[in-house]
Amino acid sequence: MSNILEIKNLVVSYGGIEAVKGISIDVPEGEIVTLIGANGAGKSTTLKTIAGIVKPKTASIIYKGHEILGKSPDAIVSSGITLVPEGRRVFANLTVKENLRVGAYLRKDSLDKDFEFVFELFPRLKEREWQLAGTLSGGEQQMLAVGRALMSRPNLIMMDEPSLGLAPLVVKSIFDIIKTINSQGITVLLVEQNANMALQVANTAYVLETGTVSMTGIGRELLSDERIKEAYLGKTRK
């Protein structure tokens, strides 16, 4: 399968300090790819750079064979890449439905089918259609954030820590939804601290450590890797 996204030698620095030191990532079309790693490894920065929100020092980001580096965030969204930002970031004073409409801001065609799709995926959102997003529970807000991103009909959806601050049961349902979204043909690039869950769903996984890729592999294989177990899955040293 061809790569929908190829990142080569990405370097990002914040005020002189390099947060990402030349990483290269390939995202094959139709797969779930995850980036795992500790705090400050540069996972979120990588996603923000792809979305065009952060400007890198040097890089080459090829999406569907075209360079998207230096394009504005709205141009990147309309080319089919959407970011579900970290910490949900729903529009608290807009209703659920308005949030979804903002998600489809750059589209001019009919949204009926997409509303149907999102409400089928998240029946809870349908129930709360007219509620202000700020009054939803954490899990519901995460669902809304994902649903909102889906409204732009992305080919590639990037999720930044979707399980952050959610109850274990809710985390499980979020990962089920990620699989469902992927089965619709949408490529998923997932950033997670919950390495266990992320590696279970991912086809390919990249382990980031302080701005560099330290390990690459198939998700399930990495799950049984001793070094990964030690560093991220809570296995104690013998």
Partner: peptide
Amino acid sequence: STYGRAFKAIRDDEIAAEAMGIN
């Protein structure tokens, strides 16, 4: 209008609004 909704989105969360493709 849609513009109004975009304004309110910017008010509520600039980063999320930018991620949704609002310039």
